[in-house]
Simulated assay, not measured.
Amino acid sequence: MAAPRVIGLDIGTSAVRAAEVALAPAGKRVRAGATLTRFGSQPLPPGAVRDGEVAEPEIVAGAIRRLWAEQRFSSKDVAIGVGNQRVIVRELDLPWMPPDQIRAALPFQVQELLPMPIDEALLDYFPTGQSDSAQGRVMHGMLVAAQRDTVRANVMAVESAGLRPLMVDLSAFALMRAVVRGQYAGRVVGVVEIGASTTQVVVAAHGVPRLVRTIPLGGQQVTTALASRLGIAAPEAENLKREAGIGFQAPPELQSAGDVISSVVTGLVEAIRNTFVYYQGNHPGAGIEGVLLTGGGAHLPGFGQFLASASRLPVAYGDVLADVRVEKAVAPMIGDGMGTMMAMPLGLAYGAAA
């Protein structure tokens, strides 16, 4: 019997990316027997996706259609993600009840907690554990509440491309699945994905998400600031960003660029550091042991060292392909640093298989 296959489709600000994974036979762990059989990406023009939400469905749909035509994915069934500032994720304890009853009761349990009308929200609950209290058994978990319009826009783009979105997952959970494994599965780690316009931060303890935050800053804001303040075109600003980096002693000709980069990146790093401080303040004795970076923006020269210095935590790139077999036809498409760009579609695929 052929191994079952799942496809994760990531709709990012600068590109759409998809990964097709063949899974191990039933009864074995997903990642331990996962094989990457297809992978591809298609660029998106500025403005097609804004702040993690599809703004131009037909443009995005066209990019997805080209991606499917080029890579010849085996199915039109996909798992997609959603994650921006209009998606709320917070810890929530509930009286224990079966999963189907939890979903039915959520609107009544959380309507006072949300900054949006309950009929405009899509709700889900991710259990993380349970305990006994004087009032009875308690379910611990994370509430996920997304604006319907945010989810609808992404789903419409996928359907317009002729695909079938079988699952809409929280991007942060997908990110955690792809990165927190092996030696990190039993530790408390922070996962940081720096995208074009947003940065996702997830704190996972022993493979379970404990805190999720979306920061409205990414690599694109650095490029835009350089282009605006130095009066140069965006492609030139992008190249200059990679040349100057952050945290280095810049030569005179790069000093102005270094100052601009520092002004933006320092704000992002402070937001990440404050997220870690908040978590550790609320979880004494269970501090974060390290940070794993993914996303294109994480490859800004010097960023990892800069974040490590600010957070006083060891920082490394997340290796999402460490225990994934890669078929020969796909291997040439995976260059240096591409592994960190694949975290989201791979994590979405793993979620669809769970």
Rank of each mutant, 00 (worst) to 15 (best):
F303K: 05
E56T: 04
A257V: 01
T128E: 08
L321C: 11
L106P: 05
P216D: 04
I246D: 10
L166N: 13
Q220Y: 12
V110E: 08
P99T: 10
R187I: 02
V320L: 03
I7M: 12
A331G: 00
V315A: 08
A225I: 03
A174P: 08
V30T: 06
R65V: 14
Q42L: 04
V179I: 15
A79V: 15
I7K: 07
S263P: 03
E91N: 15
L94Q: 06
G52Q: 02
V78H: 09
G162P: 07
R152F: 07
L292C: 13
G231M: 00
R5E: 15
F173P: 01
D10V: 08
E112I: 00
E91V: 01
L226K: 00
P301F: 03
P345E: 10
D132K: 09
G335W: 12
L44S: 00
S171H: 12
A322C: 03
G52A: 09
E53G: 05
A15P: 02
G182F: 07
P57C: 07
G351K: 06
Q249R: 07
L300V: 06
A63S: 13
A61K: 04
A271L: 08
P46K: 00
P107T: 11
L67H: 06
T294Y: 04
L163Q: 05
D119C: 02
V315Y: 07
V89Y: 01
V202C: 02
A257N: 02
A26G: 12
E70T: 09
T199Q: 07
A3M: 08
N154Q: 14
G207N: 13
R90S: 09
Q71C: 07
E20S: 10
D51G: 10
L36K: 12
S14C: 04
P45I: 06
F276G: 02
L113V: 13
L307V: 04
A322V: 13
L300C: 11
V54N: 13
A174T: 04
R86S: 14
A157P: 09
E289A: 09
G339F: 04
A153G: 06
R210K: 04
D323Y: 02
V212Y: 12
G12V: 07
E120D: 12
P57F: 13
V324H: 00
Q130E: 15
